[in-house]
């Protein structure tokens, strides 16, 4: 991990344990996620990768009885510190979900929702944000004439890119993606992957995926989780060509999971 482009750490997890009531889901997870790069979290179902993803914007907080020990910092700031404003945190750390979940509102209102709740009600500024966000998510050309249509009328792939645009609209610097393409056809998947490559550099992206090829294609760094433990964390190339742990090799070659 000496390469220059991975040098600057954006997110640092240190000895993170996570519990759902009495069940421990993460065990002593530590990793340094580099700024402006794509980090893939892989592992079999239930391995804790999604849970880890959700600790980064504290979306686990909404589930009763969850508990975290250890420390997670973003730009050196402890996001679980008592003085941390979770709403500001989530504004900085955008999230895209497995199943596209646009609001049952117009395309415009979907994008404008985020800026609006953060106090922006200026129509001109919102119009500009909507256009910029949709362009950022490579969706503008397809929907620019349908901004007032209900977002639920878009195709599955378009809906997912709309969700990405919606996340971009509040100017996050980190994007969390929880299997963003798992419900999409191959062509839409390819578009999402292209989009991730375009966003790389401007945003620190952490993506959970079940698709090994996808992880290999889009990510710079890969973290392999197994039963709540971080087994291996290394450059993607390294993980997919010369994994240092037997479990990692077994998983990526399809021997289990």
């Amino acid at each position: 991990m000496t390469d220059d482009y991975l040098k600057k750490t954006k997110i640092q997890a240190k000895n993170v344990d996570f519990f759902y009531s009495d069940t421990q889901a993460l065990f002593d997870v530590s990793m340094d996620i580099p700024e402006g790069r794509v980090t893939a979290l892989i592992g079999p179902s239930g391995c804790g990768k999604s849970t880890f993803l959700r600790t980064l914007n504290r979306m686990n907080d909404v589930i009763d009885g969850t508990r975290l020990t250890g420390k997670i910092t973003i730009d050196g700031q402890d996001i679980y510190a008592p003085e941390m404003n979770v709403f500001t945190l989530r504004k900085r750390v955008g999230m895209v979900f497995q199943k596209s979940n646009p609001f049952p509102k117009s395309v415009f209102e979907n994008i404008a929702y985020g800026p609006r709740i953060h106090g922006n009600n200026d129509r001109t500024s919102l119009t500009e944000i909507v256009e910029r966000s949709l362009q950022g998510a490579a969706l503008w050309d397809e929907v620019k004439d349908r901004l007032d249509d209900n977002a639920l009328g878009l195709s599955g792939g378009q809906q997912q890119r709309l969700c990405i645009a919606r996340a971009l609209a509040v100017n996050p610097d980190i994007l969390l993606m929880d299997e963003p393409a798992s419900a999409l056809d191959p062509r839409s998947t390819a578009r999402i992957e292209d989009l991730i490559s375009e966003l790389r550099g401007d945003y620190t992206i952490i993506i959970v995926t079940h698709n090994m090829q996808q992880a290999a294609r889009v990510s710079d760094i890969t973290a392999f989780f197994y039963e709540g433990h971080l087994i291996e964390f290394n450059k993607t190339k390294q993980i997919f060509t010369k994994p240092s742990k037997q479990q990692t090799e077994d998983y990526i070659t399809g021997r289990f999971g």
Binding site: M59, F87, G94, F97, Y113, V170
Partner: peptide, 24 residues
């Protein structure tokens, strides 16, 4: 999913209720 989307954008619970859940 609607509520999660709203919360993940930094909305408070109250904002989520009035701007997403009730309209939906």
């Amino acid at each position: 999913a609607y509520k999660s989307a709203s919360l993940s954008l930094g909305a408070t619970k109250l904002q989520t209720i009035w701007k997403v859940t009730v309209p939906a």
